[in-house]
């Protein structure tokens, strides 16, 4: 039978778990099925190094045993560090966990959630009841492959490097000490210390080009107090205090962000603080219901946007595209 890689790795796991003490490289080469075919010492070394890294990347604790002089004696997978820690779960816990697994579905962490669930179920003879005991459901759709390395780098406090293209700029290589990955309005961001800028920055994951490289370098800066607990995306521009009068029944976007609303004779007086760009967008969503705008500068911006909108589409309507 063909000895494929899965079989070789599986045999290596059995051998390293079953050994007394540790197994040296030469023992592994001569006794573990799958390595006998290596043609040279060099070929074996390469194969074994790769296999060892592969097992470690799966979370299998392949430990190196050293002698008194600091030389590697051999390798072992100690049952104490391999074995699943019993979480003492009830049937209800299992039901809740199976619903948690569905949250990721086909999104980025779906595979991890499913392999976790298999390990958990392997340890118990209890089965998951399928009754919909939790009436609310949740789904995360995140497909961005950058989420996983960024999350792991944040946990392990490692520096990451990636190519980033900010709007209106050329792509640039960035080195970041990531603190947290954040979802806001369905978009994903990473917040951390930007090593080149020397301060905190936020990056939108869709603007990362190519893959995220996790380096071996540790973080140099601690996040500001409680930063990983309550991460807020910093506003991209300064905020304007505005008072906008809208015909009743309109201006929903403005009202959602308002800090004060008073109604008077079919007019709602909305007090709202936000960036100019946001205020303009919200006003344009109910453009024909706006009665007055303060401050004056904001009103002029709104008029300019409407003028621009009209001009662009009057030309378009004539066929110049």
């Amino acid at each position: 039978m063909r000895r494929d890689k899965t079989e070789r790795l599986l045999n290596l796991v059995f051998a390293l778990m079953g050994t007394q003490g540790s197994m040296s490289r030469s023992e592994i080469r001569s006794t573990v099925a799958g390595y006998e075919s290596s043609e040279s010492d060099e070929a074996f070394e390469r194969m074994f190094e790769r296999d060892k890294d592969e097992l470690r990347s799966m979370g299998i604790p392949v430990e190196t045993v050293f002698d008194a002089f600091g030389d590697a004696l051999g390798y072992v997978i100690a049952p104490d560090s391999y074995a699943y820690i019993d979480l003492q779960l009830t049937s209800r816990d299992l039901t809740v966990l199976s619903i948690a697994t569905q949250v990721w579905d086909k999104a980025v962490l779906g595979r991890s959630a499913r392999t976790a669930m298999r390990k958990i179920e392997a340890k118990t003879d209890k089965s998951v009841t399928n009754s919909p005991l939790i009436q609310g459901v949740a789904r995360v759709r995140a497909q961005d492959g950058a989420i996983i390395p960024l999350m792991n780098a944040a946990r392990e406090k490692k520096v990451v490097k990636f190519l980033y293209r900010a709007p209106g700029h050329e792509s640039e290589k960035r080195s970041i000490e990531p603190w947290a990955v954040i979802c806001r309005n369905g978009n994903w961001y990473v917040v951390g210390h930007d090593q080149d800028r020397g301060e905190e920055r936020t990056f939108k994951l869709t603007r990362i080009q190519g893959s995220v490289n996790v380096s071996a370098q540790p973080h140099t800066q601690d996040p500001p107090h409680n930063r990983t607990r309550t991460v807020e995306l910093p506003p991209e521009e300064s905020l304007t205090d505005a008072t906008i009068c809208v015909s009743a029944g309109r201006g929903g976007s403005l009202m959602r962000h308002a800090h004060n609303i008073t109604s008077n004779n079919g007019i709602d007086v909305i007090k709202v603080k936000a960036s100019r760009a946001e205020l303009i967008t919200w006003m344009l969503s109910s453009a024909n219901a706006i009665n007055s705008v303060e401050p004056q500068g904001l009103r002029e911006d709104l008029l300019a946007s409407l003028e621009c909108l009209a001009t662009a589409h009057e030309l378009g309507g004539l066929g110049s595209g």
């Binding site: 699943y84 962490l109 991890s112 976790a116 390990k119 392997a122």
Partner: peptide, 11 residues
């Protein structure tokens, strides 16, 4: 079974 990895636990 194998111990849960940090990534699996986080998921």
């Amino acid at each position: 079974p194998l111990r849960l990895t940090a990534e699996e636990g986080a998921a």
